[in-house]
């Protein structure tokens, strides 16, 4: 699945970086994001695969990032 959204830092459950869409859709990379993409508001094009998981963060849809680039 390809998505074009923004990188956002979420200050909850200890803090993490997620991908937030203008429509409110939320994607949480299970392996985190590369350091160079941990920038608040950065617009990105991401190819992801949805994974069904359980964790402590409980924010949005867990995804595996297959590729990511700046939009």
């Amino acid at each position: 699945m390809n998505i074009t959204d923004h990188i956002r830092y979420q200050d909850l459950e200890g803090g993490f970086w997620g991908i937030l869409g203008d429509d409110g859709s939320k994607y949480l990379p299970v392996d985190g994001l590369p350091e160079s993409f941990k920038k608040e508001g950065l617009s990105v094009e991401v190819k992801v695969e949805i994974v069904h998981m359980i964790g402590t963060v409980m924010w949005g849809q867990y995804v595996k990032v297959l590729s990511i680039s700046s939009a």
Binding site: D11, E13, G14, G15, F16, L28, V30, D31, G32, V51, H52, M53, I54, G55, T56, V57, Y62
Partner: peptide, 14 residues
């Protein structure tokens, strides 16, 4: 069902 793995994140101070 797939025995899915689980992801966590590092805590930070507030």
């Amino acid at each position: 069902e797939v025995n899915e793995p689980v992801g966590l994140y590092e805590p930070i101070s507030k």
